[in-house]
Design a protein around this nucleic acid. Structure first.
Lengths: 247, 247
DNA sequence: TTACCTAACATTGTCTACAGAAGGCAATGT
DNA sequence: ACATTGCCTTCTGTAGACAATGTTAGGTAA
C-alpha cells in the first residue's frame, strides 16, 4: 500500500498538515466572527482595527479579506474598505435556489454507487450532529448541519461542486445566524436530527429519489419566512419565490 | 428619473468608474497570460519574476494570485509558491458537468420571461461573435463564446449563479486553449456562429426546452475527445463519462 | 560510484512605512 | 441660518525590506 501523499507531493507515513499561514488563520477567524454574528451585516471591517484584534499585520489580513469576498461574506468597496455583506431577500433566494441545484446534482451523481470512504465521512458528520442535538447544543446546529450537507455533496467526488457548495453554505449560515434568536416555533432539534438520519439511511440504500424528496422538505426553508418579515422582497423573482414558499 | 448610482453609493450624472487597483490589473493580466497559453499548465508562477513583468510590487500581486486561485486558474502550495493549474481529464469532467448544470438552471429560470435589458446584452454578445467569426478570428472564438454563454446565464438575474458560471468558464477556456492547435477537423467557425444564432432565436421565442436541446449539442464537447488523447482518465467517473461521450 | 549531509541560494511569508484618497468638520461668506 | 469651501483626520493602496522556509548543488564519507 502506498503511503499517503500530502499537499507537498511528498510521501509521509505521519501526515502533518502544513503550518497554517497568518492569512488562513485570519480568514478562519473572520469567518467565525461573521457566522457567529459578532460582526453584524453591514458593519464596516476596518483593517487597522482587526490587525489589533487578530494580532496580524495588514498584508495577510488583506489577503484574508480577498478570500472572504470570494466566499461572498464581505463586500469590498474600492478605496472605501470592506463591509460585512448585507443579504437581502433576493440574496436568500439566490442562495437557496443555487444550493438546491448543487445538492441535487451531487445526489444524482453520488447516490447510485457510493464510495465507502466518503460514506464514512457522512456518517461521522451525522454522529456529530446527533451528539450535539442530544446535548441540546442549539448553537451548533447550523454548523453541524452544514457539515452534514457538505459531506453529502462530497459523496459525488466532484471537488468544484463541493467547493461551490461550501461557499454557498457559508452564506446560508450567515442568513440563519441573523434569525437564530427568532427560531422559536420552528422544527425542534430532535426532529431535525431524525430527518438527517432518515436522509443518511436513504443514501445508504442508494435510493436517489427518496434522498431528493427528503431534501425538498419545506421545513428546512421555514427560516425564510422569518427572514422575509424584516427583509421585504425587492425583486420580482424573490417576491414570486416567497409567494410559492408561503403556500 | 433617478440619477445613476455608482459603486460608491453616490448619485452621479456623469459616471466615472473607480480607478482600477493594481491588484485588479495584475489579476486581469495574469488571467490573460494563462488563457492565451503564455503561461503553460504546471508552470511555476514566481512572484518576484512577475513583479518585474507587470510592474507591480508583491503585495497587490499576491492578492491577485489569491483571486486567481479562487477562480481555479492557479494552485497555491504553502511555502512552495504557485503553479498554473494542471487540468486532468477528471477536472475537465468536473468543469463540463458543473457548467452544464449551472447553464441549465439559468435557462430554466430565465427563458420563460426574459428581461429586455438582459436580452440586449445577449444580442450584443452574439453580434460580437458573428463579427469576429466573419472576420475569421478563430483566436477570439473561445473568448466570444464565453461572453455569449455568460450573457445567456446572466438572463436569469442570479448573481451567484453568474459568478460561479464565470469562474467555471475561465477554467473551460483554459482547457480549450491547450487544444487550440489541435482543433482541425472540428466544427467550423461559421457552423458555430450559426448554432449560437439559433440559440439566441430560441431564447427570444421563449422556448426553454429548445434552448436546452441546443445546449446539449454534442458538437460542443468534441474538444474533450482530443483532450483525452493526452490525458487518459484517472478516475472511474471521468472514464465512464468519456465512454458516454465517445458513443 | 552512490548516498547523505551541509551550506548557499532562491523564494515565500510577514512586517513597517509611506503616499494618496475619502469623509468629516469647521470656518467663512452669502 | 444655510450653503460652500478648505483643511484635517482616518483609512486604504502600494512599496520596500526583513525573516523564515524550502530547494538545490556541491562536497564528503562509506
Amino acid at each position: 500500500m502506498n503511503a499517503p501523499v500530502n499537499a507537498r507531493g511528498r510521501r509521509a507515513n505521519v501526515m502533518i498538515g502544513d503550518p497554517p499561514s497568518m492569512t488562513d488563520l485570519a480568514a478562519e477567524a473572520l469567518r467565525g466572527m461573521i457566522l457567529r454574528g459578532e460582526l453584524a451585516q453591514g458593519e464596516r471591517v476596518v483593517e487597522n482595527q482587526l490587525t489589533g484584534t487578530l494580532g496580524v499585520s495588514r498584508p495577510p489580513l488583506r489577503e484574508a479579506l480577498r478570500i472572504l469576498q470570494q466566499e461572498g461574506l464581505i463586500e469590498q468597496l474600492p478605496r472605501r474598505g470592506a463591509v460585512v455583506r448585507v443579504l437581502s431577500l433576493h440574496d436568500v433566494y439566490e442562495i437557496v435556489t443555487l444550493r438546491t441545484t448543487l445538492e441535487t446534482m451531487a445526489v444524482r451523481l453520488a447516490v447510485p454507487g457510493t464510495d465507502p470512504a466518503r460514506l464514512a465521512r457522512l456518517r461521522e458528520a451525522l454522529e456529530i450532529w446527533e451528539a450535539n442535538a442530544a446535548a441540546g447544543r442549539e448553537d451548533l446546529s447550523t454548523e453541524d448541519s452544514a457539515r452534514f450537507h457538505l459531506a453529502l455533496v462530497g459523496l459525488a467526488g466532484h471537488s468544484r461542486l463541493e467547493e461551490a457548495y461550501r461557499a454557498i453554505g457559508l452564506q446560508l449560515r450567515m442568513c440563519m445566524q441573523l434569525n437564530r434568536n427568532a427560531r422559536a416555533g420552528h422544527e425542534s432539534l430532535t426532529d431535525r436530527a431524525a430527518r438527517h438520519r432518515r436522509m443518511f439511511e436513504r443514501v445508504e440504500s442508494a435510493d436517489v429519489e427518496a434522498v431528493l424528496a427528503e431534501l425538498s422538505d419545506p421545513a428546512s426553508l421555514s427560516f425564510v419566512l422569518t427572514y422575509a418579515q424584516d427583509h421585504p422582497p425587492t425583486t420580482a423573482q424573490s417576491q414570486a419565490w416567497l409567494a410559492s414558499l408561503s403556500q
